[in-house]
Design a protein around this nucleic acid. Sequence first.
RNA 1: GGUCGAUUAGCUCAGCGGUAGAGCACUCGCUUCACACGCGAGGGGUCGCAGGUUCGAAACCUGCAUCGACCACCA
Length: 874
Amino acid sequence: MSATLPQSPAAGRPAKPTIDGIETVWIQRWAESGVYHFDRTAERDRVYSIDTPPPTASGSLHVGHVFSYTHTDLIARYMRMRGREVFYPMGWDDNGLPTERRVQNHFGVRCDPSLPYDPEFTPPVSAGKNQLPISRRNFIGLCEQLTLEDEKAFEESFRRLGLSVDWRQTYRTIDDRARATSQRAFLRNLARDEAYQAEAPTLWDVTFRTAVAQAELEDRERPGAYHRLGFHRPDGERVFIETTRPELLAACVALVAHPDDERYAPLFGTTVRTPLFEVDVPVVAHPLADPEKGSGIAMVCTFGDLTDVIWWRELQLPTRPIIGWDGRLHRETPTWISTAGGVAAYESIAGTTAFTAQQRSVQLLRDSGDLIGEPSAITHPVKFYEKGDKPLEIVTTRQWYLRNGGRDLPLREQLLARGRELHWHPDHMKIRYLTWVEGLNGDWLVSRQRFFGVPIPVWYRLDETGEPEYGQRLVPAESELPVDPSSDAPAGFDESQRGVPGGFMGDPDIMDTWATSSLTPQIAGGWERDHDLWQRVWPMDLRPQAHEIIRTWLFSSVVRAHLEDGVLPWSDAAISGWILDPDRKKMGKSKGNAVTPLGLLEQHGSDAVRYWAASGRPGTDTAFDVGQMKIGRRLAIKILNASSFALSFDKAASFGKAADGDSSATPVDSSDITEPLDRAMLARLAEIVREATAAFDDYNYSRALEVAESFFWSFCDDHLELVKDRAYSGRGEAAAASAQEALKLALDVQLRLFAPFLPFVTEEVWSWWRPGSVHRANWPQPEPIRAAAADGNPTLVSEAAAVLTGIRKAKSEAKVSMRATIASAEIRGPAATLARLQAMAGDLVATGAILDLRWVEADGPVVVADVVLAPEQG
RNA sequence: GGUCGAUUAGCUCAGCGGUAGAGCACUCGCUUCACACGCGAGGGGUCGCAGGUUCGAAACCUGCAUCGACCACCA
């Protein structure tokens, strides 16, 4: 394959090589030649398919993107060189709240679904303080327009980073294909009864006015206070409870204590009267009530927290909600409050926010004497929507759910088994998945009350009074997808019947973004759209992703693939860590981190930035470290210079007269490699290849780099120095040819080893003397190198290095040049070592400029002793 | 409250049963014919703490501490 690629003409080795500007050159040539294009004729077993994370294309590329996307690219490039045909698409997650928010801020608009579409609409020139209300369709238009610009910028940066993505394989989570896929999967779930609708208490964000799923929750420590309140018993005694939410007193439906709590046992079955509102509520028993907490008896409200929901459900308590969708208390006095005093009390808090209601309630309770003592301040965890600013409320709403094992033990077991079946890198990340699945307390809530997203593809019949009949669902045929029930009419109806008695209405909700993101393999792989592609890539090989979205993206993807096809969506998951800034905080969460990826790439070079990223092992958080980038840059430059030097000995290579044909072939005649040191170096290199390969196979790319890099530096510092004189034909043509051929082979192998990490500099050097692209060349195999090494002993490499160090040390301590002549020196060591070293004595003598080298057998490691420097020469 | 991970030289990290490692930083040198974006040499660590297993522990086991993260029915 590689040999047929239209590659740049071998320009030969430049006199003064530089890495500056090579990104531009190679980005262009790779785009022209299509080296990274996926070959659709490859069968599944030769394909390596990657479920690339679609970045949220709202805003700018972050350093964290550079980091984690590089990791995936390392694997992709390695697999490609291993002969796999790599399916490496790119998606854009432009569907969801971040996009909505960005459009609001960027254009200074907000969506008002009640407004009509304005075809003449143009966004405000500058975003004003008051957001301009616009129609849903206009709003979505702006979303698509803005994300398209962002996506272009992302692609440019990713190309600059050197990602070997096939840029013909892209998708957007808001585009027609993604919406159709998402709706198709939903309809299949619906048909199999895996999706269902229910009216139930739902976690609700009052700012966004949407339901929120368990996976999107986070706890935040917030200040609060225990308020001790007295409930009135019929006999005039009082029962004291403690609550952090006195404003929900009007929603109280019972008091609950532990069944074994002797303090309250006499009260079970009796009623007490709530303070202020004077509502009679039962005292009931439930094992979840903790005798140690507060006064040991709790007020149950509909609904203050998730425990209330459990009590309400299991004890079959009445529903008395007072908090509305806007987070304010209902304006009308609830029907269950009937006394004059109760009505008056409610009227003073009606319509206020929860915060104000609490303040007023406390004052009322204090005045009535029902607040015992003063509230005692505490801090406690409060549930928030992860993107929200106000605590969640719990309101009863009609929502769509997808079965995910949250209330179904057999399904949960199956999904746990899928988690164990998946190969995790690193393995311990599996535990997060298992913990999450084990802790699920309900099915996956997939409906959202937002505007921009994939609509639920369902309509409802309206009865004679115009009320929806939720049991009378109308769904589209799969061939009609995608649909928007708010503008498309169901089959058999026309638009005039929308909203009228006997007609229909569209489901107003959209799906959770994860309901679409959980299908990225299906969207990218052509599920039910491109069967030929699908059967070549599915199930996929790799899901790379961040660890904080194991419970969301990874788990929901497993759910979807399991329900639809009964398989894991991929065999392996590579979990990347975070970038930490110098304060050890997740980068971007603290201030002063205005490091732009493009700036980094320009300043240090793409290879250098990739080098830094490659130092972060899978699953390990990594410090942002410009120092590592400088080292990477140094390595890239060293590769350039060392290659130029190594090739300079070979006249054919230096003039670009590279062998034609297959780049996988060894470019040398190994029968020329006769010198012990050359053979030893190659023997060592064969070991290095073996180690790097094993590391890569284990997804441990940082180890693979480390192994190659460590060899390369000693190759430069020791081997190149030791063979320099000989390669210059200092000791005959045969000895020179041995050095030259071994250098070429070593260079060829090392370029391949570095290619996944430093794609630009390796390709540059490759182009000087080798055909095709190094990125389509084969990953090196240890066996042929070992064969070329013949009887070479890898031990000699370190022994020679030890001697060289001894010689250098003597010169360094004498503060003379490394070229200074040594009159005499002695090498001491075991007989076997001395024998090996004596066979390469010519290299040692020439490199050390030693006139008289003596050999003395001795125990212990080899040392250089009795070094006598020659008198300085004028 | 439960769980996972981390704790090794000033910094960033590797090592994971057999005499403490790398790079950076630091010190001292070197116009050496690929590279001064270079080259060479050197100093620097009771491997978080306390027990245990072992002939031998940085590594294995048990606690503890600190940091980070994940999860949790948090009145």
